[in-house]
């Protein structure tokens, strides 16, 4: 059916359509003129402008890329410098800390030694003061004992003692009394 249909349709086309494949000189000339005019107009007014615009954009893109690359290089350089400085700063900080630590240790040691010295000195001074106080107290006690001894002896004997007797009595009484415990107890305190 399709073949028959094609034959039916092709027959009139072949019979009456010879003008379809017959070139016309007039139309060819018109085509040439119109095409030529189009080419002139496009090559004068359209193509150069489009080309120039595209070149401008290309240039702008290249410049942008160059700028971006330059900026990136600068940024990398700045970053490298920053890193170097940071490293230096860290090294300096470490050095400062180390130095401070050493100084602190020295100062601590010195302070400790000085403290020990002060404590020792204070202790010695206290010892001396205690000893002096003890000595004074013993002296006072001795005197008191002597007075009491004399007084007691006078009361017992109902007579006044001459200075030689007083001296002998006191010395005997004091000899019999042991003050070493007081003295050692005071020094221990």
């Amino acid at each position: 059916m399709l073949t028959a249909l094609a034959r039916d349709l092709a027959a009139p086309l072949a019979a009456n359509g010879s003008f379809l494949i017959k070139p016309g000189v007039g139309l060819m000339v018109w085509t040439l003129l119109v095409f030529g005019l189009t080419m002139v107009l496009l090559s004068k007014l359209a193509f150069p402008r489009i080309s120039a615009a595209l070149e401008r954009r290309q240039k702008a893109i290249e410049e942008s890329i160059d700028t971006a690359e330059r900026t990136r290089a600068e940024a990398e350089q700045i970053l490298a410098e920053y890193r170097q400085r940071l490293q230096e700063a860290r090294a300096q900080a470490d050095e400062i800390i180390q130095r401070a630590r050493q100084t602190a240790e020295v100062q601590e040691r010195e302070a400790k030694e000085r403290g020990q010295e002060i404590v020792a000195e204070a202790s010695q001074r206290a010892q001396r003061e205690i000893e002096a106080a003890t000595k004074r107290a013993l002296e006072e006690l001795r005197n008191e004992v002597a007075d009491l001894t004399i007084t007691a002896t006078e009361k017992v004997t109902r007579k006044a003692l001459d200075p030689e007797d007083q001296k002998r009595l006191v010395e005997e009484a004091l000899r019999e009394m042991d003050f070493s415990g007081l003295s050692s107890g005071a020094s221990n305190n």
Partner: peptide, 10 residues
């Protein structure tokens, strides 16, 4: 052709 291309080119 001319109008389109010239219009856009301008």
């Amino acid at each position: 052709t001319c109008v389109t291309m010239i219009y856009i080119a301008r």
